[in-house]
Computed example of a mutant assay.
Amino acid sequence: MKKGIFLICLLLGLAAKAQVWEDSYTNALNKANTEDKPIVLVFSGSDWCGPCIRFKKKILDSEEFVGFATNNYVLYNADFPRKKKNSLSQEKLNDNKGLAEKYNPKGYFPLVVVLDKNESILGKTGFDKRKSPEKYLDLFNGYLK
């Protein structure tokens, strides 16, 4: 019984710490307005772009980034997978294409665009393997000033 309670508490703790990526840009925008938070919009090719995969693993999935970003930003991944098994719904693909036309017309991957709740660009950056998660957070926070 004690082991079961411990396991449940552990899983709930991990779930509470989990990073929340919004499932649609509309939801991200609504949450940004409701919670008065900036949006971190990530353009990625999750199943074909090597730098995107490394950026996710080294930065976006790090404890430092997850802990801070989940509480201070609204997160949305405009993904462009190529493998059929990872394909997106047509609606989500169209949304991501619209975001790319507006914020990433040159098609850079990965690209991070930090937006305010009114969708104005506060800053843009790519992946620099020499930067730590803390350096990225400092960069994003610098865009807010």
Rank of each mutant, 00 (worst) to 15 (best):
11 L>Q: 05
115 L>W: 13
7 L>K: 08
105 P>C: 08
101 E>S: 12
3 K>L: 11
43 F>C: 04
97 K>C: 10
17 K>W: 13
144 L>N: 03
144 L>G: 00
13 G>M: 07
136 Y>Q: 05
92 K>T: 10
111 L>T: 01
96 N>I: 03
91 E>C: 02
54 R>G: 01
10 L>D: 03
12 L>W: 14
79 D>T: 00
94 N>T: 15
70 T>I: 07
106 K>P: 03
111 L>Q: 05
106 K>I: 06
79 D>E: 01
79 D>W: 00
25 Y>M: 09
111 L>V: 01
47 D>A: 01
108 Y>P: 01
118 N>A: 13
49 C>R: 00
93 L>N: 05
5 I>V: 15
86 N>Y: 06
127 F>A: 06
110 P>K: 05
107 G>F: 13
120 S>W: 10
106 K>R: 12
40 V>I: 15
132 S>D: 11
4 G>S: 13
6 F>R: 06
140 F>V: 02
48 W>K: 08
8 I>R: 12
96 N>W: 06
52 C>P: 02
55 F>Q: 04
98 G>W: 08
74 V>I: 11
56 K>Q: 06
32 A>H: 10
108 Y>S: 07
144 L>Q: 07
23 D>M: 15
104 N>Y: 07
123 G>M: 06
76 Y>P: 08
64 E>A: 10
110 P>L: 05
69 A>D: 13
142 G>A: 08
87 S>D: 11
72 N>C: 01
43 F>Y: 07
63 E>Y: 09
53 I>A: 02
22 E>C: 12
35 E>A: 12
31 K>F: 00
144 L>E: 10
9 C>W: 10
134 E>L: 13
88 L>Q: 14
74 V>R: 04
116 D>V: 04
30 N>H: 11
103 Y>S: 00
111 L>K: 03
21 W>M: 09
132 S>W: 12
103 Y>L: 01
63 E>T: 15
124 K>V: 10
60 L>N: 10
92 K>V: 08
137 L>G: 01
132 S>F: 10
66 V>T: 11
8 I>K: 13
45 G>K: 10
37 K>V: 01
136 Y>L: 04
37 K>E: 01
122 L>Y: 02
111 L>R: 01
54 R>M: 03
66 V>Q: 14
142 G>Y: 02
38 P>C: 07
116 D>M: 13
104 N>T: 06
141 N>Q: 14
80 F>W: 09
143 Y>A: 09
11 L>W: 08
113 V>D: 02
126 G>M: 04
69 A>S: 15
72 N>K: 01
9 C>I: 14
32 A>I: 04
14 L>H: 11
141 N>A: 08
65 F>W: 07
49 C>S: 03
89 S>F: 03
60 L>G: 06
124 K>I: 05
76 Y>F: 12
120 S>G: 09
50 G>V: 10
130 R>A: 05
135 K>F: 05
121 I>M: 08
1 M>H: 05
123 G>T: 04
120 S>Q: 15
56 K>G: 00
16 A>G: 11
125 T>P: 11
22 E>T: 12
11 L>Y: 02
116 D>I: 07
3 K>Y: 11
38 P>K: 03
69 A>G: 13
117 K>Q: 14
37 K>W: 02
131 K>R: 15
